[in-house]
Simulated scan of single mutants.
Amino acid sequence: MPKIIGLTGGIGSGKSTVAKFIEEMGFPVYYSDVRAKEIVNDDELLKKGIIELLGAKAYDENGLYDRKYVAEIVFNDEELLQKLNGMIHPAVKYDFEKWVGNQTTEFVFKETALLFELKLNESCFKSVLVTADDNLRLKRVMDRDGKTYREVENVMNKQMPEKDKIKIADFVIFNNDGMDELQAETENVIRQIEKLNE
C-alpha cells in the first residue's frame, strides 16, 4: 500500500498549483474537494440523504447539486452543516480508499482543504501545508473569483488560522513569491519526504 501524504492549504494559498507540480513529479493526487463535488451528483444514496436533509431544492431541475443554494442554507447553520458534512465526508473517505487501492506508487497525495480541521492528518504518513501571507491570499481570491474583500474574509475566518496549521504540519511550503520559487520549494519538500522512506 502506498503511504498517504496529506496536502492542504487555505483558500488562495496555491495548494492546487502545488498539487499540479506533485503530479508532474509522477505522484498521483486525489483531489478531495473536486471528488466531493462529483460524488454529491453520482452517489444516489448520498443524493437521497441530502434531499431528505435539505429538501428537493438542494438539486436543480437537471438533478445537479445546487452548491449556491446549499451554501446559503448551511453557511450560518453550524448544526445543519455538520449533518451535511457527516454524509459527504464518509462517502469521500470510501471513494479515497478505493482510489488508494488502485495506486502503485510509493506515495500518494490526498489534497483537501480540511486536513487538520477533520483530523485527517492523523491517518497520513506526513502532512504538507501550503501557505501564504493573508493579504496576498485575499488579493488572489478576489482577483480569481471576483469576490469582495468581505466575502473572502468570511471564508478565511471559518478556516483554522494559518499559524495553528503551521504548528501541526510536518512540512510547510510558503507561497509568497513566484511560480519558479514555488516549484523549487515543492520539489525540495518531496525529496525530503522520499528520504524519510529510504
Rank of each mutant, 00 (worst) to 15 (best):
V152A: 06
K98P: 14
M142K: 12
F125R: 09
E97W: 12
F125C: 08
L120Y: 05
M142G: 13
R144Y: 05
T131P: 11
E97A: 15
L118T: 09
V130I: 12
R144C: 10
D133G: 05
K93R: 14
N135T: 03
N154E: 09
R140G: 10
M142S: 12
K139P: 14
A113Q: 11
T148H: 00
L114Y: 05
K139G: 14
L114K: 08
L136Y: 01
N135I: 05
R144M: 09
E151I: 00
K119W: 02
L118M: 12
C124R: 05
N102I: 01
D145E: 09
E111K: 13
K110P: 07
N121K: 08
R144L: 10
K126Y: 04
F109K: 11
L129W: 00
L129D: 02
F96D: 15
E117Y: 01
R144I: 06
T131Q: 14
E106R: 07
L136P: 01
A113N: 07
N102H: 06
F116C: 12
K110V: 06
N102V: 01
T131A: 15
L118A: 13
E111R: 09
A132P: 06
F107L: 15
W99A: 06
G146C: 03
F116M: 08
V128C: 06
T112I: 14
S127D: 07
R140S: 13
V128N: 08
M142N: 14
D95I: 03
D133T: 03
A132M: 02
E153F: 02
V141Y: 04
L136D: 07
S127V: 02
L138N: 12
K126M: 02
N154P: 00
D95L: 08
D134K: 15
S127R: 00
D145A: 05
V128A: 07
K147I: 02
F125T: 10
D143R: 08
T105A: 13
K126W: 02
K119A: 11
K98A: 15
V130W: 01
R140A: 12
F125L: 10
K98F: 14
L136A: 04
G101N: 08
L118F: 05
K139E: 15
V128Q: 13
S123W: 04
V155W: 00
E117K: 03
L114I: 10
L136N: 11
T148L: 01
V141C: 11
K98N: 15
N154L: 06
V152R: 01
K119M: 09
K126R: 12
T112P: 14
V128F: 00
V130C: 11
L115A: 04
K110Y: 11
E151L: 00
M156W: 04
V155G: 01
L120V: 03
G146W: 01
E151W: 00
T148C: 01
L136I: 08
S127I: 02
D145P: 04
R140H: 11
A113K: 14
F109W: 12
T148R: 00
C124W: 04
V128D: 14
L115F: 02
V128T: 05
K119R: 11
L118N: 11
T104P: 04
V155E: 10
V130L: 03
E97P: 15
T112R: 14
L118S: 13
V128S: 10
A132W: 01
E117C: 01
E117I: 03
K147G: 06
N135S: 04
E106N: 09
T112Q: 13
K93V: 12
S123Q: 09
